[in-house]
Design a protein around this nucleic acid. Sequence first.
RNA 1: GUCAGAAUGGCAGAGUGGCUAUGCCUCCGGCUGCAACCCGGAGAUACGUGAGUUCGAUUCUCACUUCUGACUCCA
Length: 472
Amino acid sequence: MFQIYNTLTRKKEIFKSLKEGEVSIYACGPTVYNMPHIGNYRTFLMTDNLVRTLEYLGYKVKLVMNITDIDDKTIRDSKAVGMSLKDFTDRYTAEFFKGLDMLNIKRASTYPRATENVDGMIELAQKLIDKGLAYEKDGSIYYRISGFPNYGKLSKIDFDNIIIGASVDVDEYDKDNPRDFALLKASTPEEIERGIYYESIWGKIRPGWHIECSVMAMNSFGPTLDIHTGGVDLIFPHHENEIAQSEGATGKPFVYTWVHGEHLIVEGEKMSKSKGNVFTLPEIVRKYGGEVVRFMFLSVHYRKKLDYSDAFAENAKNNYLRLKETLDNLEFALASAEDAAYPEDGEVLKALPEIENHFRGALEDDFNTPKAVTVFRDLSRTINKYLESGKNRQVLEKLHSLYRQFSDVLGLFAEAGKEEIPENVMKLVEEREAARKNKEWAISDALREKIKSLGYIVQDTKEGQNVKKVEY
RNA sequence: GUCAGAAUGGCAGAGUGGCUAUGCCUCCGGCUGCAACCCGGAGAUACGUGAGUUCGAUUCUCACUUCUGACUCCA
């Protein structure tokens, strides 16, 4: 039974999908205006873990993630570098996808773009106007918050207690109520000159930010969906506004379960440009490798802050490599497995179902990946122990299949076993083999050093030399 | 001010109403020609403070302190 924490109720709830066996998820994707940083990816990875967990538990998952390719920031920054909006956002969209691959994040079913859904936004705005929930002012369309009594149900913000001035731009005299937000914005002369506008009955407009998600989510799934994900900072106002737009227009519940990922901080502080502690994904991946970064994120629960530091990354790397080592050694052992039975076979096989139950239980509990990782480590130890002396083919295959199942759910070791050892290295290994046969230890050790300098490590086992690439 | 979350050993970080993982680090033993990997063992006064519930709390409740975040573009 899958349980998941719902921001709407601030409780862990037993998950029940609208359609038996199927889950619809809408995830707030990137605004493509710069290199995404590791914090952005933590949130995307959270959604990936949720998807993988649901699939592991037998659901068919449809994930839709939007790409915001038109908003204040994309317009501003594309101009600053003298690019068209499209060229500019295409560039960062490509970067975004590269990052997904670095972390082995599964692709969503679709990635709708805001610019491709403006018609739908105009329609939705019109519908809200017809219902008295939106109004036009100076060519822009605003949502009338006072018309939607449920406003605030997600964020639980008491708007009577908001310090006006601290939170609301008092200069926004063009709205009826300072908290009303823009659905569509009148294009400025400059935007029009750059071709950034769409025709409407209210004149030339371009989308605000919040409306795109309501439109794309409902286009993909209809008025109601199972799960909506995003970072905690989106709870207010973005997701609150999505609810107001969607439920205001349809009168139906928009989302049953809201899932929000906590932020990543750096050495105890929020990442911010002014502090100079913003890390992009490629920077970190270059240093530690994509899967180590993934593992690092997995080892902290998504509703807890992750305090990034070099020490933490190193820690994750060591843990990761240890688990990877088990897989390597297991596969190496498999190559020389035997059909004979070993005394420890039965004991190992008996332990597996329990381990598997623990693993499933961890993920069923609000997709608790750190707990799942611990179970993964338990399995690793069990395997290492068996490898000490046992080498029955059937047992090894069973261990391998379970280990692989776990690693797949966690999205780890995607490339394992695919690395080819270069010829020149293999040649040295063969030379070393000969030297070892003749007990020429000096030569053997020199060759080991040489191989190491080429980035490979050799381990001597009863079954011969095991060669592997040194990782980071 | 309102709404959240967090406080665990030298470090990093899970987790739990009664026994606290794991990794790094140090040491010992096994394995090895020597290593590496792996296994076993040992080390360290660890659960923010004060109350309460309880036979028993690090774990639940309340308060306090400190920190972080949201309330303004933000994953």
